[in-house]
Design a protein around this nucleic acid. Sequence first.
RNA 1: GGCCCCAUCGUCUAGCCUGGUCCAGGACACCUCCCUUUCAAGGAGGACACAUGGGUUCGAAUCCCAUUGGGGUCACCA
Length: 551
Amino acid sequence: MTDSIPSHQSVVTRFAPSPSGHLHVGGARTALFCWAFAKGRGGKFVLRIEDTDQKRSSDAASIGFVKDLLWLGIDFDEGPEYEGLGGGAHGPYFQAQRLDIYQRYFEQLLASGDAYYAFESADELATLRAEAKARNQPFRYTGESSRAMAPAEVKRRLAGGDAAVIRFHTPPGSITIHDEILGDATLPEGEVDDFVIRKADGFPTYHFAVVVDDELMGVTHVLRAQEHFNNSAKHIVLQDALKFRRPVYGHLPLIFNPDGSKMSKRDKDKVLRKAVSEKGLTAPPAGTVDPAIFSAWLKDKNTQLAIDAAQTLAQAIGAVLPEINVDDFRKSGYLPEVICNFLSLNGWSPGGDVEKFDREFLKKSFDLSRVVKTAAKFDRNKLLAFNLDAIQAMGRQDFIARVAAHGRDMHPEFMVKLTDAQFRSLCDASQERSKTLDDLFRTNTFITTSDDDLTWDAKAIAKFIVAGEPAGAVHLATARTILQECDEWTVSSLEAALKPFAESLGNVGKIAQPLRVAVCGGTVSPPIFDTLAILGKASSLRRIDRCLESL
RNA sequence: GGCCCCAUCGUCUAGCCUGGUCCAGGACACCUCCCUUUCAAGGAGGACACAUGGGUUCGAAUCCCAUUGGGGUCACCA
Protein backbone atom coordinates (compact mmCIF):
# COMPACT_ATOMS: atom_id res chain seq x y z
CA MET A 1 0.00 0.00 0.00
CA THR A 2 2.96 2.25 0.33
CA ASP A 3 3.96 1.82 -3.27
CA SER A 4 4.72 4.94 -5.15
CA ILE A 5 2.77 5.77 -8.22
CA PRO A 6 4.00 3.59 -11.08
CA SER A 7 6.32 5.18 -13.57
CA HIS A 8 4.22 4.38 -16.61
CA GLN A 9 1.56 6.69 -15.36
CA SER A 10 2.00 10.16 -16.77
CA VAL A 11 3.51 12.72 -14.48
CA VAL A 12 1.44 15.40 -12.77
CA THR A 13 3.07 18.05 -10.60
CA ARG A 14 1.50 21.03 -8.96
CA PHE A 15 2.44 24.38 -7.55
CA ALA A 16 0.16 25.28 -4.68
CA PRO A 17 0.79 28.70 -3.18
CA SER A 18 -1.40 30.88 -1.00
CA PRO A 19 -3.12 33.64 -2.89
CA SER A 20 -0.85 36.61 -3.33
CA GLY A 21 -0.27 39.48 -5.63
CA HIS A 22 3.39 38.69 -5.94
CA LEU A 23 5.55 35.68 -6.54
CA HIS A 24 8.53 35.24 -4.25
CA VAL A 25 11.76 34.00 -5.88
CA GLY A 26 11.71 30.90 -3.72
CA GLY A 27 8.23 30.13 -4.93
CA ALA A 28 9.31 30.84 -8.46
CA ARG A 29 12.09 28.28 -8.16
CA THR A 30 9.66 25.67 -6.83
CA ALA A 31 7.21 26.43 -9.63
CA LEU A 32 9.97 26.28 -12.20
CA PHE A 33 11.16 22.88 -11.04
CA CYS A 34 7.63 21.49 -10.88
CA TRP A 35 6.97 22.84 -14.35
CA ALA A 36 10.21 21.54 -15.83
CA PHE A 37 9.81 18.13 -14.25
CA ALA A 38 6.31 17.62 -15.63
CA LYS A 39 6.88 19.24 -18.99
CA GLY A 40 10.07 17.38 -19.60
CA ARG A 41 8.20 14.12 -19.18
CA GLY A 42 5.14 14.93 -21.23
CA GLY A 43 3.14 15.39 -18.06
CA LYS A 44 0.93 18.09 -16.64
CA PHE A 45 1.62 21.03 -14.40
CA VAL A 46 -1.27 22.08 -12.18
CA LEU A 47 -1.72 25.36 -10.36
CA ARG A 48 -3.82 25.28 -7.23
CA ILE A 49 -4.62 28.10 -4.84
CA GLU A 50 -4.42 27.29 -1.15
CA ASP A 51 -6.79 29.85 0.27
CA THR A 52 -8.12 28.02 3.28
CA ASP A 53 -7.01 30.66 5.74
CA GLN A 54 -9.95 32.96 6.19
CA LYS A 55 -7.90 35.44 8.15
CA ARG A 56 -5.95 36.17 5.03
CA SER A 57 -8.90 35.86 2.78
CA SER A 58 -9.24 39.58 2.31
CA ASP A 59 -6.92 39.23 -0.63
CA ALA A 60 -7.93 35.67 -1.34
CA ALA A 61 -9.07 36.60 -4.80
CA SER A 62 -5.66 37.98 -5.54
CA ILE A 63 -3.69 35.77 -7.82
CA GLY A 64 -1.60 38.56 -9.22
CA PHE A 65 1.40 36.31 -8.86
CA VAL A 66 0.23 34.41 -11.92
CA LYS A 67 1.42 37.27 -14.10
CA ASP A 68 4.89 36.78 -12.63
CA LEU A 69 4.72 33.08 -13.39
CA LEU A 70 3.77 33.76 -16.99
CA TRP A 71 6.40 36.47 -17.31
CA LEU A 72 8.96 33.84 -16.40
CA GLY A 73 7.57 31.60 -19.09
CA ILE A 74 6.00 29.14 -16.68
CA ASP A 75 2.56 28.22 -17.95
CA PHE A 76 0.18 25.69 -16.46
CA ASP A 77 -2.11 23.05 -17.86
CA GLU A 78 -4.73 23.13 -15.18
CA GLY A 79 -5.63 25.76 -12.66
CA PRO A 80 -7.63 28.92 -12.15
CA GLU A 81 -8.75 30.51 -15.37
CA TYR A 82 -6.43 33.36 -16.17
CA GLU A 83 -6.14 35.07 -19.51
CA GLY A 84 -7.03 32.04 -21.53
CA LEU A 85 -5.02 29.66 -19.41
CA GLY A 86 -6.19 27.26 -16.77
CA GLY A 87 -9.40 25.39 -16.37
CA GLY A 88 -9.35 21.63 -16.30
CA ALA A 89 -11.29 18.61 -15.23
CA HIS A 90 -10.26 18.64 -11.59
CA GLY A 91 -11.48 22.04 -10.52
CA PRO A 92 -12.31 24.17 -8.80
CA TYR A 93 -8.68 25.08 -8.23
CA PHE A 94 -9.36 27.36 -5.30
CA GLN A 95 -9.53 25.28 -2.16
CA ALA A 96 -12.07 27.58 -0.57
CA GLN A 97 -14.44 26.46 -3.32
CA ARG A 98 -13.94 22.78 -2.55
CA LEU A 99 -15.42 22.68 0.93
CA ASP A 100 -18.13 20.19 -0.02
CA ILE A 101 -15.47 17.84 -1.36
CA TYR A 102 -13.48 17.96 1.86
CA GLN A 103 -16.64 17.41 3.86
CA ARG A 104 -17.16 14.00 2.28
CA TYR A 105 -13.74 12.91 3.45
CA PHE A 106 -14.19 14.37 6.90
CA GLU A 107 -17.28 12.27 7.26
CA GLN A 108 -15.47 9.21 6.00
CA LEU A 109 -12.76 9.60 8.63
CA LEU A 110 -15.24 10.39 11.36
CA ALA A 111 -17.20 7.27 10.47
CA SER A 112 -14.15 5.04 10.41
CA GLY A 113 -12.97 6.40 13.73
CA ASP A 114 -9.82 7.87 12.26
CA ALA A 115 -10.93 11.34 13.21
CA TYR A 116 -12.82 12.91 16.07
CA TYR A 117 -14.19 16.18 17.31
CA ALA A 118 -12.25 18.16 19.86
CA PHE A 119 -13.53 21.10 21.86
CA GLU A 120 -10.48 22.71 23.40
CA SER A 121 -10.28 26.41 22.64
CA ALA A 122 -7.30 27.94 20.93
CA ASP A 123 -6.52 29.75 24.17
CA GLU A 124 -6.50 26.57 26.21
CA LEU A 125 -4.15 24.96 23.75
CA ALA A 126 -1.91 27.99 23.71
CA THR A 127 -1.61 27.74 27.49
CA LEU A 128 -0.69 24.07 27.33
CA ARG A 129 1.83 24.83 24.64
CA ALA A 130 3.39 27.58 26.68
CA GLU A 131 3.70 25.24 29.64
CA ALA A 132 5.35 22.61 27.54
CA LYS A 133 7.71 25.18 26.16
CA ALA A 134 8.59 26.40 29.63
CA ARG A 135 9.55 22.84 30.51
CA ASN A 136 11.49 22.63 27.27
CA GLN A 137 9.23 19.83 26.20
CA PRO A 138 7.56 19.49 22.85
CA PHE A 139 3.80 19.87 22.99
CA ARG A 140 1.87 16.85 21.76
CA TYR A 141 -1.87 16.72 21.60
CA THR A 142 -3.00 13.27 22.56
CA GLY A 143 -6.72 13.94 22.90
CA GLU A 144 -7.56 11.10 25.25
CA SER A 145 -10.40 13.02 26.83
CA SER A 146 -11.80 14.07 23.49
CA ARG A 147 -11.78 10.54 22.20
CA ALA A 148 -13.30 9.28 25.43
CA MET A 149 -16.20 11.65 25.07
CA ALA A 150 -19.48 9.84 24.57
CA PRO A 151 -20.96 10.24 21.10
CA ALA A 152 -24.11 11.63 22.60
CA GLU A 153 -22.15 14.27 24.45
CA VAL A 154 -20.31 15.23 21.28
CA LYS A 155 -23.60 15.50 19.47
CA ARG A 156 -25.08 17.61 22.23
CA ARG A 157 -22.20 20.07 22.28
CA LEU A 158 -22.15 20.32 18.54
CA ALA A 159 -25.88 20.95 18.46
CA GLY A 160 -25.40 23.52 21.18
CA GLY A 161 -23.09 25.40 18.88
CA ASP A 162 -19.84 24.75 20.74
CA ALA A 163 -16.80 25.52 18.67
CA ALA A 164 -15.07 22.32 17.61
CA VAL A 165 -12.32 21.19 15.37
CA ILE A 166 -11.86 17.78 13.83
CA ARG A 167 -8.61 16.05 14.59
CA PHE A 168 -7.02 13.11 12.88
CA HIS A 169 -6.21 10.20 15.15
CA THR A 170 -2.66 9.38 14.19
CA PRO A 171 -2.11 5.64 14.42
CA PRO A 172 0.72 4.29 16.56
CA GLY A 173 4.05 3.44 15.01
CA SER A 174 6.88 5.26 13.38
CA ILE A 175 6.44 6.94 10.03
CA THR A 176 8.95 6.69 7.21
CA ILE A 177 9.07 9.38 4.58
CA HIS A 178 10.53 8.36 1.24
CA ASP A 179 12.08 11.31 -0.50
CA GLU A 180 13.68 11.23 -3.92
CA ILE A 181 16.06 13.99 -2.97
CA LEU A 182 16.83 13.46 0.68
CA GLY A 183 16.41 9.71 0.91
CA ASP A 184 14.39 8.04 3.65
CA ALA A 185 13.75 9.49 7.05
CA THR A 186 11.85 7.86 9.87
CA LEU A 187 10.04 9.81 12.52
CA PRO A 188 9.68 7.86 15.78
CA GLU A 189 6.27 7.05 17.16
CA GLY A 190 4.69 9.96 18.94
CA GLU A 191 6.31 12.63 16.82
CA VAL A 192 3.12 13.22 14.91
CA ASP A 193 0.25 13.98 17.22
CA ASP A 194 -3.46 14.16 16.57
CA PHE A 195 -3.40 17.23 14.38
CA VAL A 196 -6.32 19.37 13.32
CA ILE A 197 -7.75 18.61 9.92
CA ARG A 198 -10.82 20.82 10.05
CA LYS A 199 -10.77 24.18 11.74
CA ALA A 200 -13.61 25.52 13.82
CA ASP A 201 -14.67 27.68 10.90
CA GLY A 202 -15.30 24.57 8.84
CA PHE A 203 -12.31 25.04 6.56
CA PRO A 204 -9.82 22.24 6.14
CA THR A 205 -6.29 22.77 7.36
CA TYR A 206 -3.48 22.79 4.87
CA HIS A 207 -2.56 19.19 5.58
CA PHE A 208 -5.97 17.88 4.84
CA ALA A 209 -6.69 19.95 1.77
CA VAL A 210 -3.32 19.09 0.25
CA VAL A 211 -3.82 15.38 0.66
CA VAL A 212 -7.34 15.34 -0.73
CA ASP A 213 -6.57 17.62 -3.63
CA ASP A 214 -3.35 15.93 -4.63
CA GLU A 215 -5.22 12.65 -4.81
CA LEU A 216 -8.19 14.04 -6.69
CA MET A 217 -6.05 16.00 -9.08
CA GLY A 218 -3.92 12.99 -9.84
CA VAL A 219 -0.71 14.53 -8.59
CA THR A 220 2.09 11.99 -8.96
CA HIS A 221 5.08 14.02 -7.79
CA VAL A 222 5.11 16.51 -4.98
CA LEU A 223 8.05 18.88 -5.26
CA ARG A 224 8.07 21.53 -2.58
CA ALA A 225 10.42 23.38 -0.27
CA GLN A 226 12.24 21.47 2.45
CA GLU A 227 10.36 23.32 5.17
CA HIS A 228 7.51 20.96 4.37
CA PHE A 229 9.55 17.86 4.97
CA ASN A 230 8.13 17.01 8.38
CA ASN A 231 4.63 17.75 7.14
CA SER A 232 4.96 14.82 4.82
CA ALA A 233 4.55 12.49 7.75
CA LYS A 234 1.13 13.95 8.43
CA HIS A 235 0.23 13.66 4.81
CA ILE A 236 1.31 10.07 4.66
CA VAL A 237 -0.80 8.93 7.59
CA LEU A 238 -3.74 10.78 6.12
CA GLN A 239 -3.24 9.16 2.74
CA ASP A 240 -3.15 5.74 4.35
CA ALA A 241 -6.31 6.34 6.33
CA LEU A 242 -8.09 7.65 3.26
CA LYS A 243 -6.76 4.75 1.12
CA PHE A 244 -5.11 7.21 -1.22
CA ARG A 245 -2.05 6.61 -3.34
CA ARG A 246 1.20 8.11 -2.16
CA PRO A 247 2.83 10.57 -4.50
CA VAL A 248 6.57 10.65 -4.93
CA TYR A 249 8.07 13.31 -2.72
CA GLY A 250 11.00 15.56 -3.45
CA HIS A 251 11.87 18.28 -0.96
CA LEU A 252 13.82 21.10 -2.47
CA PRO A 253 16.59 22.87 -0.59
CA LEU A 254 15.77 26.31 0.75
CA ILE A 255 17.02 29.57 -0.68
CA PHE A 256 18.58 31.98 1.82
CA ASN A 257 19.89 35.50 1.92
CA PRO A 258 23.65 35.89 1.65
CA ASP A 259 23.83 36.33 5.43
CA GLY A 260 22.14 32.99 5.95
CA SER A 261 18.78 34.33 7.03
CA LYS A 262 15.67 33.10 5.37
CA MET A 263 14.73 35.11 2.33
CA SER A 264 11.40 36.66 3.01
CA LYS A 265 9.12 39.50 2.11
CA ARG A 266 9.96 40.96 5.48
CA ASP A 267 13.46 41.72 4.36
CA LYS A 268 12.13 44.78 2.60
CA ASP A 269 10.50 45.96 5.75
CA LYS A 270 13.70 45.42 7.70
CA VAL A 271 15.70 47.55 5.30
CA LEU A 272 13.06 50.23 5.34
CA ARG A 273 12.90 50.34 9.13
CA LYS A 274 16.64 50.61 9.31
CA ALA A 275 16.69 53.49 6.84
CA VAL A 276 13.89 55.25 8.68
CA SER A 277 15.61 54.96 12.03
CA GLU A 278 18.96 56.03 10.61
CA LYS A 279 17.33 59.14 9.29
CA GLY A 280 15.53 59.63 12.58
CA LEU A 281 12.22 59.99 10.80
CA THR A 282 9.23 60.24 13.09
CA ALA A 283 6.76 61.27 10.42
CA PRO A 284 6.53 60.25 6.78
CA PRO A 285 7.73 62.67 4.11
CA ALA A 286 4.78 64.59 2.70
CA GLY A 287 2.85 62.82 0.01
CA THR A 288 4.26 59.36 0.66
CA VAL A 289 2.46 57.38 3.31
CA ASP A 290 -0.55 58.17 5.42
CA PRO A 291 0.85 59.53 8.74
CA ALA A 292 -1.48 57.36 10.80
CA ILE A 293 -0.44 54.23 8.95
CA PHE A 294 3.16 55.28 9.23
CA SER A 295 3.14 55.75 12.98
CA ALA A 296 1.22 52.52 13.52
CA TRP A 297 3.81 50.75 11.42
CA LEU A 298 6.67 52.38 13.25
CA LYS A 299 5.27 51.33 16.59
CA ASP A 300 4.75 47.68 15.78
CA LYS A 301 7.76 45.90 14.36
CA ASN A 302 5.64 42.90 13.51
CA THR A 303 3.61 44.76 10.95
CA GLN A 304 4.65 45.42 7.43
CA LEU A 305 3.91 48.35 5.20
CA ALA A 306 1.92 47.53 2.09
CA ILE A 307 4.21 46.89 -0.82
CA ASP A 308 3.35 50.06 -2.74
CA ALA A 309 3.55 52.25 0.34
CA ALA A 310 6.92 50.74 1.21
CA GLN A 311 8.15 51.46 -2.28
CA THR A 312 7.11 55.11 -2.30
CA LEU A 313 8.53 55.68 1.15
CA ALA A 314 11.79 54.03 0.20
CA GLN A 315 12.05 56.17 -2.87
CA ALA A 316 11.38 59.33 -0.88
CA ILE A 317 14.14 58.63 1.62
CA GLY A 318 16.55 57.18 -0.89
CA ALA A 319 16.51 53.65 0.46
CA VAL A 320 16.96 50.75 -1.91
CA LEU A 321 14.78 47.83 -1.01
CA PRO A 322 16.12 44.37 -1.77
CA GLU A 323 14.58 42.50 -4.65
CA ILE A 324 12.60 39.61 -3.23
CA ASN A 325 9.66 39.14 -5.54
CA VAL A 326 9.90 38.23 -9.17
CA ASP A 327 8.27 41.53 -9.96
CA ASP A 328 11.07 43.38 -8.17
CA PHE A 329 13.58 41.79 -10.49
CA ARG A 330 11.47 42.64 -13.49
CA LYS A 331 11.38 46.27 -12.41
CA SER A 332 15.12 46.23 -11.90
CA GLY A 333 15.59 45.19 -15.49
CA TYR A 334 16.43 41.51 -15.20
CA LEU A 335 15.51 39.23 -18.06
CA PRO A 336 13.01 36.47 -17.30
CA GLU A 337 15.08 33.83 -19.08
CA VAL A 338 18.10 34.79 -16.99
CA ILE A 339 16.13 34.56 -13.78
CA CYS A 340 14.93 31.09 -14.73
CA ASN A 341 18.45 30.06 -15.58
CA PHE A 342 19.90 31.44 -12.39
CA LEU A 343 17.14 30.16 -10.15
CA SER A 344 17.66 26.68 -11.58
CA LEU A 345 21.23 26.79 -10.42
CA ASN A 346 20.11 27.30 -6.85
CA GLY A 347 19.57 23.72 -5.81
CA TRP A 348 20.20 21.97 -9.08
CA SER A 349 22.81 21.77 -11.79
CA PRO A 350 23.01 19.83 -15.02
CA GLY A 351 26.60 18.81 -14.27
CA GLY A 352 29.54 18.95 -16.62
CA ASP A 353 30.33 22.60 -15.94
CA VAL A 354 27.22 23.68 -17.85
CA GLU A 355 25.54 26.67 -16.32
CA LYS A 356 24.08 28.75 -19.09
CA PHE A 357 20.93 27.25 -20.54
CA ASP A 358 17.36 28.03 -21.48
CA ARG A 359 14.01 26.70 -20.33
CA GLU A 360 13.93 24.08 -23.06
CA PHE A 361 17.20 22.67 -21.83
CA LEU A 362 15.92 22.74 -18.29
CA LYS A 363 12.80 20.84 -19.31
CA LYS A 364 14.87 18.19 -21.01
CA SER A 365 17.52 17.89 -18.33
CA PHE A 366 15.85 18.50 -15.01
CA ASP A 367 15.70 15.48 -12.79
CA LEU A 368 15.44 14.86 -9.08
CA SER A 369 18.68 12.93 -8.80
CA ARG A 370 20.68 16.07 -9.46
CA VAL A 371 18.87 18.23 -6.97
CA VAL A 372 21.22 19.19 -4.18
CA LYS A 373 20.38 18.64 -0.52
CA THR A 374 21.88 21.80 0.86
CA ALA A 375 20.35 25.24 1.08
CA ALA A 376 21.63 27.90 -1.29
CA LYS A 377 22.41 31.52 -0.57
CA PHE A 378 20.99 33.76 -3.23
CA ASP A 379 23.91 35.51 -4.92
CA ARG A 380 22.71 38.68 -6.59
CA ASN A 381 26.16 39.37 -7.99
CA LYS A 382 26.11 36.24 -10.03
CA LEU A 383 22.59 36.92 -11.22
CA LEU A 384 23.72 40.35 -12.33
CA ALA A 385 26.68 38.88 -14.16
CA PHE A 386 24.40 36.43 -15.95
CA ASN A 387 22.09 39.24 -16.90
CA LEU A 388 24.96 41.24 -18.32
CA ASP A 389 26.11 38.27 -20.36
CA ALA A 390 22.65 37.77 -21.77
CA ILE A 391 22.33 41.44 -22.67
CA GLN A 392 25.67 41.46 -24.39
CA ALA A 393 24.73 38.41 -26.37
CA MET A 394 21.60 40.09 -27.70
CA GLY A 395 21.33 41.40 -31.21
CA ARG A 396 21.18 45.17 -31.51
CA GLN A 397 17.52 45.27 -32.58
CA ASP A 398 16.55 42.85 -29.88
CA PHE A 399 18.22 44.97 -27.25
CA ILE A 400 16.55 48.13 -28.48
CA ALA A 401 13.16 46.44 -28.52
CA ARG A 402 13.51 45.05 -25.04
CA VAL A 403 14.85 48.22 -23.52
CA ALA A 404 12.06 50.16 -25.19
CA ALA A 405 9.46 47.78 -23.78
CA HIS A 406 11.02 48.11 -20.34
CA GLY A 407 11.12 51.88 -20.71
CA ARG A 408 7.48 52.19 -21.77
CA ASP A 409 6.57 50.08 -18.80
CA MET A 410 8.81 51.53 -16.13
CA HIS A 411 10.00 54.93 -17.33
CA PRO A 412 7.35 56.43 -19.59
CA GLU A 413 8.42 59.96 -18.66
CA PHE A 414 11.88 59.19 -19.97
CA MET A 415 10.62 57.66 -23.18
CA VAL A 416 8.46 60.62 -24.20
CA LYS A 417 11.34 63.02 -23.97
CA LEU A 418 13.48 61.23 -26.54
CA THR A 419 12.98 60.98 -30.25
CA ASP A 420 13.16 57.55 -31.73
CA ALA A 421 16.55 58.33 -33.23
CA GLN A 422 17.90 59.62 -29.93
CA PHE A 423 16.68 56.57 -28.14
CA ARG A 424 18.25 54.19 -30.63
CA SER A 425 21.55 56.03 -30.39
CA LEU A 426 21.40 55.86 -26.63
CA CYS A 427 20.77 52.13 -26.82
CA ASP A 428 23.69 51.64 -29.17
CA ALA A 429 25.94 53.56 -26.84
CA SER A 430 24.68 51.69 -23.79
CA GLN A 431 24.32 48.03 -24.61
CA GLU A 432 27.86 46.96 -23.87
CA ARG A 433 27.75 48.62 -20.47
CA SER A 434 24.26 47.53 -19.43
CA LYS A 435 23.91 44.96 -16.73
CA THR A 436 20.16 45.34 -16.69
CA LEU A 437 17.48 46.79 -18.96
CA ASP A 438 17.12 49.52 -16.38
CA ASP A 439 20.71 50.78 -16.30
CA LEU A 440 20.32 53.08 -19.25
CA PHE A 441 17.42 54.89 -17.62
CA ARG A 442 19.07 55.27 -14.26
CA THR A 443 22.43 56.46 -15.49
CA ASN A 444 21.35 58.88 -18.21
CA THR A 445 18.89 61.14 -16.47
CA PHE A 446 20.91 64.11 -17.73
CA ILE A 447 19.45 63.49 -21.16
CA THR A 448 15.92 64.14 -20.07
CA THR A 449 16.86 67.07 -17.86
CA SER A 450 16.21 70.26 -19.76
CA ASP A 451 19.26 72.32 -20.72
CA ASP A 452 18.35 75.10 -18.33
CA ASP A 453 17.71 72.81 -15.39
CA LEU A 454 21.00 70.96 -15.56
CA THR A 455 23.12 71.33 -12.44
CA TRP A 456 26.76 70.40 -11.97
CA ASP A 457 28.44 68.21 -9.47
CA ALA A 458 30.82 70.43 -7.49
CA LYS A 459 33.58 67.85 -7.28
CA ALA A 460 33.46 67.21 -10.99
CA ILE A 461 33.62 70.93 -11.74
CA ALA A 462 36.57 71.36 -9.41
CA LYS A 463 38.50 68.49 -10.87
CA PHE A 464 37.82 68.78 -14.59
CA ILE A 465 36.78 72.38 -15.22
CA VAL A 466 38.61 74.48 -12.64
CA ALA A 467 41.77 72.47 -12.09
CA GLY A 468 44.50 71.89 -14.61
CA GLU A 469 47.19 73.93 -16.24
CA PRO A 470 45.66 75.34 -18.26
CA ALA A 471 42.27 74.83 -16.66
CA GLY A 472 39.72 72.48 -18.17
CA ALA A 473 37.51 75.46 -18.79
CA VAL A 474 40.05 76.80 -21.26
CA HIS A 475 39.95 73.59 -23.28
CA LEU A 476 36.22 73.50 -22.97
CA ALA A 477 35.96 76.97 -24.48
CA THR A 478 38.18 75.94 -27.37
CA ALA A 479 36.17 72.80 -27.92
CA ARG A 480 33.05 74.88 -27.94
CA THR A 481 34.30 77.03 -30.79
CA ILE A 482 35.19 73.90 -32.75
CA LEU A 483 31.77 72.39 -32.11
CA GLN A 484 30.13 75.64 -33.09
CA GLU A 485 31.56 75.15 -36.57
CA CYS A 486 30.26 71.60 -36.96
CA ASP A 487 27.41 71.38 -39.41
CA GLU A 488 27.19 67.65 -39.34
CA TRP A 489 26.42 66.36 -35.85
CA THR A 490 27.15 62.67 -35.81
CA VAL A 491 29.44 60.54 -33.69
CA SER A 492 32.01 60.20 -36.44
CA SER A 493 31.94 63.81 -37.58
CA LEU A 494 32.22 65.08 -34.04
CA GLU A 495 35.10 62.79 -33.38
CA ALA A 496 36.81 63.91 -36.56
CA ALA A 497 36.32 67.55 -35.66
CA LEU A 498 37.59 67.28 -32.11
CA LYS A 499 40.36 64.69 -32.55
CA PRO A 500 43.10 67.01 -33.84
CA PHE A 501 42.60 69.41 -30.94
CA ALA A 502 42.40 66.58 -28.44
CA GLU A 503 45.59 65.03 -29.76
CA SER A 504 47.38 68.33 -29.57
CA LEU A 505 46.68 68.21 -25.85
CA GLY A 506 48.12 64.74 -25.51
CA ASN A 507 45.09 62.51 -25.14
CA VAL A 508 41.38 62.61 -25.64
CA GLY A 509 40.79 62.57 -21.91
CA LYS A 510 41.97 66.17 -21.65
CA ILE A 511 38.94 67.29 -23.56
CA ALA A 512 36.51 64.44 -23.00
CA GLN A 513 36.10 64.94 -19.28
CA PRO A 514 35.53 68.72 -19.31
CA LEU A 515 33.02 68.23 -22.09
CA ARG A 516 31.34 65.37 -20.29
CA VAL A 517 31.01 67.33 -17.09
CA ALA A 518 29.69 70.35 -18.97
CA VAL A 519 26.95 68.53 -20.83
CA CYS A 520 26.05 65.86 -18.26
CA GLY A 521 26.67 67.59 -14.96
CA GLY A 522 28.87 64.72 -13.77
CA THR A 523 31.66 62.41 -14.74
CA VAL A 524 29.69 59.44 -15.99
CA SER A 525 28.00 59.11 -19.35
CA PRO A 526 28.17 57.07 -22.52
CA PRO A 527 31.27 57.75 -24.66
CA ILE A 528 31.56 61.50 -25.10
CA PHE A 529 30.96 61.67 -28.84
CA ASP A 530 27.86 59.52 -28.50
CA THR A 531 26.70 61.73 -25.69
CA LEU A 532 27.10 64.90 -27.73
CA ALA A 533 25.42 63.29 -30.73
CA ILE A 534 22.44 62.19 -28.67
CA LEU A 535 22.01 65.59 -27.07
CA GLY A 536 22.25 67.41 -30.38
CA LYS A 537 24.05 70.58 -31.27
CA ALA A 538 21.82 73.21 -29.73
CA SER A 539 21.56 71.36 -26.46
CA SER A 540 25.26 70.60 -26.24
CA LEU A 541 26.31 74.20 -26.90
CA ARG A 542 23.73 75.58 -24.53
CA ARG A 543 24.95 73.31 -21.75
CA ILE A 544 28.57 74.23 -22.36
CA ASP A 545 27.70 77.90 -22.29
CA ARG A 546 25.78 77.60 -19.08
CA CYS A 547 28.59 75.64 -17.52
CA LEU A 548 31.15 78.25 -18.47
CA GLU A 549 28.91 81.05 -17.24
CA SER A 550 28.38 79.34 -13.93
CA LEU A 551 32.04 79.60 -12.97
C1' G B 1 14.55 21.59 24.24
C1' G B 2 12.38 16.90 21.25
C1' C B 3 12.46 15.11 16.38
C1' C B 4 14.24 15.35 11.30
C1' C B 5 17.77 16.89 7.66
C1' C B 6 22.36 18.81 5.94
C1' A B 7 28.03 19.78 5.70
C1' U B 8 33.56 20.77 -1.06
C1' C B 9 36.67 27.78 -2.41
C1' G B 10 33.51 34.14 0.35
C1' U B 11 29.06 32.40 -2.93
C1' C B 12 26.49 28.87 -6.58
C1' U B 13 28.24 24.22 -7.63
C1' A B 14 31.13 19.56 -10.32
C1' G B 15 33.22 15.27 -8.22
C1' C B 16 30.58 11.36 -3.72
C1' C B 17 26.05 6.44 -5.19
C1' U B 18 30.00 2.67 -8.70
C1' G B 19 36.94 4.54 -3.27
C1' G B 20 42.77 5.41 -6.86
C1' U B 21 42.53 9.29 -13.29
C1' C B 22 41.30 15.16 -7.55
C1' C B 23 48.21 17.99 -4.27
C1' A B 24 39.78 18.72 -6.11
C1' G B 25 37.10 21.25 -11.90
C1' G B 26 33.79 25.42 -13.53
C1' A B 27 31.21 30.01 -12.57
C1' C B 28 30.31 34.69 -9.69
C1' A B 29 32.81 37.79 -6.37
C1' C B 30 37.91 39.22 -4.93
C1' C B 31 43.35 40.73 -6.02
C1' U B 32 47.20 42.18 -9.81
C1' C B 33 48.38 43.79 -14.55
C1' C B 34 46.81 45.31 -19.64
C1' C B 35 43.36 48.18 -22.64
C1' U B 36 40.92 52.90 -22.07
C1' U B 37 37.67 59.64 -23.28
C1' U B 38 34.35 58.69 -17.83
C1' C B 39 31.53 54.51 -16.05
C1' A B 40 31.26 49.92 -17.53
C1' A B 41 32.72 46.13 -20.60
C1' G B 42 36.93 43.34 -22.42
C1' G B 43 41.95 40.67 -22.16
C1' A B 44 45.94 38.14 -19.20
C1' G B 45 47.39 36.31 -14.66
C1' G B 46 46.57 35.23 -9.19
C1' A B 47 44.80 33.88 -4.37
C1' C B 48 40.87 30.72 -2.36
C1' A B 49 37.59 24.77 -0.22
C1' C B 50 36.99 18.60 0.82
C1' A B 51 34.26 21.31 9.11
C1' U B 52 36.97 18.26 13.11
C1' G B 53 38.32 13.53 15.18
C1' G B 54 38.26 8.46 14.81
C1' G B 55 37.82 4.16 11.97
C1' U B 56 37.49 0.66 7.22
C1' U B 57 41.14 0.15 3.17
C1' C B 58 47.31 -0.84 0.00
C1' G B 59 44.62 3.84 -0.93
C1' A B 60 39.00 8.26 1.21
C1' A B 61 36.48 14.54 -0.70
C1' U B 62 34.27 9.82 -1.89
C1' C B 63 32.29 4.22 2.80
C1' C B 64 31.18 3.93 8.52
C1' C B 65 30.95 6.28 13.47
C1' A B 66 31.38 10.37 16.73
C1' U B 67 31.91 15.55 17.55
C1' U B 68 31.08 20.38 15.99
C1' G B 69 28.41 23.67 13.10
C1' G B 70 24.09 25.03 10.23
C1' G B 71 19.04 24.50 8.88
C1' G B 72 13.99 22.77 9.18
C1' U B 73 9.91 21.51 12.21
C1' C B 74 7.07 21.13 16.65
C1' A B 75 -0.32 26.34 14.86
C1' C B 76 -7.63 25.96 14.31
C1' C B 77 -0.50 29.53 8.65
C1' A B 78 0.45 27.53 4.39
